[in-house]
Design a binder for these strands. Structure first.
Lengths: 164, 164
DNA sequence: AGAGATTAATCAGAGCTCTGATGGTCGTCA
DNA sequence: TGACGACCATCAGAGCTCTGATTAATCTCT
């Protein structure tokens, strides 16, 4: 237990009784996602990549020449965000961008050899994080967790009041 | 199924067989967390708040006078990030910051009446998101989900290779 | 062929988030 | 008392993320 020498105020004021953070599914999801991001960030960092850059390279390695818009959809980010990510990848010479031979307004993006190398390096460590994580659960538990998460997703995206 | 009129390249190149995104727990967690963030962002927006601002105000309402450092810990962000959030809240006159009477290097932060009002407004809608979400599950399922998420968290933070 | 819808790319701007670095304040202990 | 360590606050810089808006190319349908 940390005793904070500068603790300044423990007084509670009367007010509306709110739902505590701990009751909220969102808190737990946020914490877990953040911890996972931290672990993955550390995993891909030796390869000189960020997590979003790793995700983009991953998709690019399987589908070289894909458009930035399509890449954004696969990586679950907006096209504007993908533009930012690609700008940094291109500056690091990990991808190449060339106009599409037929559709002039489409730009094809491909990983460079250096990009593939960085991806391989990052992927090995990222997968090891996933494997260690999965090893903490039985197959049944993993299935259950996936199903429950899928239900959360459905609830959020189908409810007209909540999601899209 | 969306047919992309601009689909540019479906050719797959041979390469290392990687773990697919769908197999990765991280993908599911990321997607769900992102959807939840989207829903919460929409929920607190009418109150003129962002999700991090809402979280900060929430803690501040329960513990007015808390230091920025302590606030950062409760909100699971770094002190630097909290500085950014507080700067925006102060600019919007939703919080007040005054030097601590005893410890000159500590600054006490408190919500203004406008801040409390915005919080109340945001909280109502944020809680409704949580309630609708929870309503999609039985009590048993919620417990299971929480336990599984807790195990993910433990695995990530206790494993010396992964977390801290 | 032309109008309108759709898609791609990207700029602008705001906000959150991190790491790294700095300077100041306070408590502890030799 | 003075050195040291812990902690607070915050600047600097990089990167990701979103919404909103613009420009251009392509497709579809009349």
């Amino acid at each position: 237990m940390v005793v904070n020498a500068y603790m300044v105020d423990g007084v509670r004021t009367m007010g509306p009784m709110r739902m505590s953070f701990d009751e909220r599914l969102g808190s737990h999801l946020k914490r877990v996602e953040q911890e996972l991001t931290t672990a993955k960030t550390a995993a891909v960092k030796p390869a000189g990549l960020t997590v979003p850059q790793y995700a983009a390279l991953f998709v690019l390695a399987e589908q070289p020449g894909i458009s930035a818009a399509e890449l954004a959809r696969r990586c679950l980010v907006t096209p504007q965000t993908m533009t930012t990510i690609l700008r940094n990848l291109e500056a690091a010479a990990l991808i190449e961008r060339t106009p599409h031979p037929l559709h002039r307004h489409v730009i094809e993006t491909r990983p460079t050899p250096a990009g593939r190398k960085a991806l391989d390096q990052a992927d090995e460590r990222a997968v090891s994080v996933e494997r260690r994580l999965a090893a903490a659960f039985s197959q049944d538990e993993l299935d259950t967790l996936r199903k429950l998460l899928a239900r959360v997703s459905e609830t959020l995206t189908s409810d007209p009041v909540l999601g899209s």
